[in-house]
Simulated scan of single mutants.
Amino acid sequence: MLSFLLAAGAAKMAQPQAEPANMNQPKRPRGLKPTEPLLSRKDWPVLYREGIVWDAHACLPLIPNADMSPLQRHREAGVTYVSVNVGMDFNPLADCIRVIAGFRDWLAKHDDHYCLAGSIADVARAKETGKLAVSFDLEGSMMLNDDLAMIGLFRDLGVRQMHLAYNRDNQIAGGCHGEDQGLTDLGRAVVKEINRVGMIMDCSHSSRATSLEIMQLSSKPVVFSHSNPSAVRAHPRNVDDIQIKACAETGGIIAINGIGPFLGDDRTETILAHIDYVVKKVGAKHVGIGIDYSFDQVHTDLPPGEDAAYWWPKTSGVDFGKMAFVPPERWPAIAVALLKNGYSEADATAILGGNFMRVAGESWT
Rank of each mutant, 00 (worst) to 15 (best):
V318A: 08
K281T: 15
L157F: 12
N170Y: 05
I254L: 15
R168Q: 08
A189M: 13
D111Q: 10
A337L: 08
R125P: 00
L116N: 06
I200E: 01
L144H: 02
Q15N: 14
V84S: 00
D122G: 06
R41V: 14
I100E: 01
A133H: 07
S211Y: 00
H74N: 14
A337H: 07
E269H: 04
C59Y: 01
V84C: 06
K109I: 00
I214G: 05
S294H: 07
D105G: 03
A246N: 12
N85Q: 08
G260P: 02
D301P: 07
V46L: 11
L272I: 07
D89H: 01
G321C: 07
K314A: 12
P20T: 03
H74E: 13
K131G: 04
R233V: 05
N170I: 09
V191F: 05
V359G: 01
R160F: 13
A273R: 15
A308V: 14
C96E: 00
S206K: 00
Q17D: 01
S219R: 15
S227P: 12
A66P: 01
A126D: 02
R330S: 02
V239S: 07
P303I: 11
L71V: 08
A234V: 13
A350G: 09
D67C: 12
L60W: 04
N170R: 05
E179W: 09
R160I: 06
A189S: 15
E128Q: 14
I100C: 05
V191M: 04
F154D: 03
T268Q: 14
P70Y: 08
R104I: 08
D105T: 15
Q181E: 04
L47F: 10
R49H: 12
